[in-house]
Simulated scan of single mutants.
Amino acid sequence: MAELQVLSKRVGIKLKQQSQVLVTAESCTGGGIAYVITEVAGSSAWFDRSFVTYSNDAKMEMLGVKPETLEHYGAVSEQTVQEMATGALQHSNGTCSISVSGIAGPSGGSEDKPVGTVCFAWQLNSKPINFETVVFNGDREDIRIQACSHALKKLEAMLDL
C-alpha cells in the first residue's frame, strides 16, 4: 500500500502542475483508487470525486453507460469502460478520468474473460480515450491492488506526454 501512496503523490503533483482535476469511475476496485488518492494530504486540489458503480444499474444511472453496450459487450469490456470514463467527466468537475471494470474473483471468470481480467480507460480533456485490457494474477486482493497501481501508473505516464 505504501507504494500506491507514493505513486498517488507523484500523480497528484503532476495533476496539480497541469491544472488537471481527476475523477474516477470504479467497479472491481470498489473505490480503491479514490482511497489511495485521498490518503494524500491536499488531494482535494486535484481530485473531484469517484463513482463506485459496481452494478450495471449504477453504471447506467450514474455514468450514462448504454444498456445495449452492457448487453452486447458486458460490464467487463473496453466499450463499457470507455463510456464510464466519458460519463465520469460529464457528471463531475473533472478534466481527466480513470475508469476500471474487471473480474477480481474468486468466481465470475469465463474462458473469454478469466478471473484477473480488468479493463481500463483514461480520458484527459478532449484527447482521444486510451483504453486497454490486462489480465492480472493472484487472489482477489492482489488483483484489485494491481488494478489500482496500473491505473495510476498509466495516468502518470500519460501526464508526462
Rank of each mutant, 00 (worst) to 15 (best):
G31Y: 07
S110I: 05
P128W: 00
F120S: 09
G87D: 06
T95W: 07
H91S: 08
V11M: 08
S50L: 06
S19F: 09
G87K: 13
S19I: 05
L15H: 11
D112A: 15
V23K: 06
G30W: 02
T80E: 01
D57F: 02
N130Q: 11
Q18E: 14
V36T: 07
E3D: 14
V135Y: 05
R49F: 02
C119M: 12
H150P: 03
Q18L: 14
G105S: 11
M60Y: 06
A157Y: 09
I13W: 03
S8D: 05
A88L: 07
A151F: 01
I33K: 05
T86C: 00
V23M: 05
V76T: 06
Q90G: 04
Q146N: 09
T53C: 06
T53F: 08
Y54H: 13
C119W: 11
Y54K: 11
T133E: 01
T133M: 07
N130E: 12
H150N: 09
T29S: 01
F131I: 03
G32T: 04
C148G: 02
V100D: 04
N137G: 07
S43E: 07
S99G: 10
E3W: 00
E68W: 09
S8I: 06
T86F: 08
N56V: 00
K127I: 04
G94I: 11
Q90I: 02
I13K: 15
S77K: 02
D48R: 05
Q79L: 00
